[in-house]
Simulated assay, not measured.
Amino acid sequence: MSPRWTSRRRFLALCGASALTALGSSRNPSRSVQASPSPHDTIHREFSGGNLSGWRLALGDGIYAAPDEPPVSIEDIETRHEDVLSELRANVRKRRIMAHNITYFRQRDELALQYTHLFTCHFRLPYMPSVENTEENGQALDAAVFVWDGIDTRMDWGAAFQWGLNPRERFGELRVNIQEGVHAAGWEPVGYLTPDLEWHTFQIIVNYPLQTASLRIDEQSFPIDLVGIPKRWPATISAGVQVEAISMYPGTTLNGTLHRVQFRDWSWLWMDMKQQRLFLPTVLNTTQGVLRSGAFTSPSFREGMQMETPQPRKSKRLMNHRVPRCLISK
């Protein structure tokens, strides 16, 4: 799947009106900037589709197997593509397990951390989870934007939200990733979305140069944090968007159930600061990060990451690579 160059008209059609509001909101006050776009101005990169065809499938780490059950494997998940949507399935064999379907799309780009990434997608449940439903039940639906920095920090930087769908616990709760120390990210409740069979829309925006993030679901904004997760991935820089389905945790007493979630009409846009001002009526223009948890600025986090003021290496790669501000002592 190759990127397309986007005009302002196409950008507005892809994002919808609510994206403009979302880009102008964060956890800190912002300043609006007005600009008149030229016919020759374009978004840096744009990817979009009616379904998730061309995305990859991976088994996530949110898995469990009851005693005497074989381990969870890639055979327990699948993603099906139709003309107008894609359906993520977890625990397709209805075993006494919790299976985790991650369907993702990645692009390698050494400049990925220099842009604001806007990920928009429609999602729905094709069935209603309930305590009485013994065939289909879910644990969660997730979505995220991350950029892997395998050159300097060896951290995966991004923002993610989760919709709790287990009818036996916190049904409909919305959660976001927060930093828990140096090496882990946890979940924190931020709101509620009533489970139903209707189509909903999420918009995740991560401004890497300013270290800000924004989450909007339908017409409501929710607080969200920028987090860093260490990985053992190759020494490259790559950006990715992903959606996820986790089947219900059966414990030792419940039967396994199938979980299905559907996605359609997605777009992923990369913009630099100039392009934000050209394409958007309001711009996320904060001077501080939106890290409510304070993870990147707390003394314990700085000590764990050895976050002294860095001495730049005199290499062409470093001079052309924007180091995240969370690595620089305040």
Rank of each mutant, 00 (worst) to 15 (best):
L88G: 05
V176A: 09
F123E: 06
Q162E: 08
G158S: 08
R95P: 12
W148N: 07
R93A: 15
R108G: 03
R175F: 06
W163M: 08
E188A: 11
F146I: 02
E82R: 13
G158D: 03
V182A: 15
D142V: 04
N137R: 03
G181T: 11
Q179N: 02
S73A: 13
G158C: 05
P129T: 10
I77Y: 04
D76K: 02
Y104D: 12
Y127H: 08
D152V: 13
P67Y: 01
Q179S: 03
L141F: 15
D76M: 04
E135P: 02
E75N: 11
P126D: 07
D156F: 09
A90W: 04
V182T: 15
V145F: 00
R154C: 14
D61T: 11
R175L: 14
V190C: 06
Y104S: 15
E136T: 11
S73I: 04
R89W: 07
T79P: 07
W157Q: 06
F161M: 08
V190W: 01
L113H: 02
E136Q: 15
Y115C: 03
L85A: 13
V147S: 02
D83G: 11
Q162G: 09
R80S: 00
S73D: 06
Q114E: 13
Q114Y: 00
L59N: 02
P70T: 03
H183I: 12
Q162T: 14
D149W: 00
I74P: 01
D142Q: 10
D61W: 12
G191I: 11
Y115A: 07
A99G: 13
Q107K: 14
R80G: 00
L59Y: 03
Q114A: 13
P189G: 09
P189I: 12
R175K: 14
A160G: 08
W148F: 10
R124M: 06
L125R: 04
A65S: 15
V147F: 01
E132C: 12
R95Y: 03
A65D: 10
A143M: 10
V176R: 06
V147H: 02
H100E: 05
I178F: 05
M128V: 12
N101M: 05
V92Q: 09
M155E: 04
H81T: 11
P167Q: 05
E87H: 00
V145M: 02
P71W: 00
D109K: 05
L59R: 10
L118P: 05
F123V: 07
L141N: 07
F123R: 01
G181K: 13
P129F: 12
Q162V: 09
P67A: 03
A185K: 14
T153M: 00
K94A: 15
T103V: 07
